[in-house]
Design a protein around this nucleic acid. Structure first.
Length: 321
DNA sequence: AAGGTTACCAACCGCGGGTAG
DNA sequence: TCTACCCGCGGTTGGTAACCT
């Protein structure tokens, strides 16, 4: 880690960031366009002001917070700084192998839904996970012939050298630009892709084998389910082909809470399953939601199969109490 | 040692959803 | 129902440390 605590007094990035917000004027946030606000890296003094204020007054009302806290920053900037860096629950430092494994698995399920992924990895922020994905994991997958967007094998004709060559400066593109919307599409068939496992990275091996063996295989539309956005509206355009209207209704009715519960159940059930050694068990739980199988949560009948979470990592989401 | 390139990551931007009035 | 505002998300940028030639 080169610069674990980046606050610096270096000048603001660039004037380009001073450009007015979008043409969507009704949505523009005045705090961001207001001149005279400080930009760029946070100083320790600013950090302290912000932390102290939030400790005293609590989070929220970001728009007015800077003024109240005596900061010359826009609310967005304050929120970001707090969320990604100052929050006490933020865990700094290396991503552990089990965390990496979980990120891989969750990304396969959720695509670039960084906040959802982060919600399952205690102490990690969406920004951190996104960065880690873009700088490490996507490259790793590419170098192993796996398309980081779809988690499918890349074109088998493409030699590893080509892959490597295209993955360096182009990494920036691998990062965000090439995946404008959540993967949304590890379509069901992709779940059976088993051909390109890693031999050099145990973590990825685990990742691949998890997909292969436990996976979400079989279950219809689970990936479609995960393509729902938080409000239950499916973002992907073509993942529910072949589903009946009722099936689509089932899928579209999912909410973030339900999804969250489902992810928890995946985690719990997997832990239980691995404990039982058969990979199929359903974890008993005092939490009714958690104790429900995904099938019962979503009415998927019996088509749902055991979870894919890493069995050695059981996040204890603070939100869940 | 110097200059160039790559890797990393904090911070910014634009947009969409939710909601109060 | 409409409008304005707030919040949060995902994509992108750019500064800088580390590495390479």
């Amino acid at each position: 880690m080169r610069n674990p605590s980046p606050p610096s007094s270096s000048p603001s990035k660039t004037t380009t960031t001073q450009k007015a917000s979008s043409a969507k004027t009704t949505k523009s946030t005045p705090c961001c366009t207001k001149v005279g606000l400080k930009r760029g890296p946070w100083t320790p003094e600013e950090d302290e002001l912000l932390s102290n204020y939030i400790k005293k007054e609590g989070e929220g009302r970001w728009r007015t917070l800077p003024k109240r806290a005596g900061l010359l920053r826009c609310g967005k900037s304050c929120r970001l700084r707090w969320m990604n860096y100052l929050r006490p629950s933020v865990k700094r430092g290396q991503i552990a192998p089990d965390e990496e494994d979980l990120i891989l698995r969750l990304h396969r399920l959720l695509g670039n839904r960084w906040s959802l992924i982060a919600g399952r990895i205690p102490g990690r922020t969406d920004n951190e996970i996104k960065n880690y994905w873009n700088t490490h994991l996507s490259k790793k997958l590419i170098s192993q012939g796996i398309d980081p967007r779809t988690h499918k094998p890349l074109n088998p004709d493409q030699s590893p050298t080509d892959l490597k060559a295209s993955s360096s400066k182009a990494n920036r593109n691998v990062a965000g630009t090439s995946n404008p919307k959540p993967n949304n599409n590890p379509d069901s068939s992709s779940l059976e892709d088993t051909s390109s496992g890693s031999k050099e990275n145990p973590s990825l091996d685990h990742y691949q084998s998890g997909i292969t063996s436990g996976g979400l295989g079989g279950g219809y539309g689970f990936t479609s389910l995960l393509n729902c956005d938080d409000s239950g509206v499916e973002r992907g355009s073509n993942n529910n082909q072949g589903l009946s209207n009722e099936e689509e209704d089932d899928i579209n009715c999912c909410t973030d809470d339900v999804l969250s519960s489902f992810l928890n159940s995946l985690i719990n059930e997997d832990a239980f399953a691995s404990h039982q050694g058969n990979g199929i068990g359903i974890a008993p739980s005092s939490d009714p939601l958690r104790s429900m199988s995904a099938a019962s949560v979503f009415g998927f009948g019996t088509s749902w199969e055991p979870p894919i979470m890493s069995s050695n990592f059981i996040p204890n989401d603070p939100k869940e109490g």
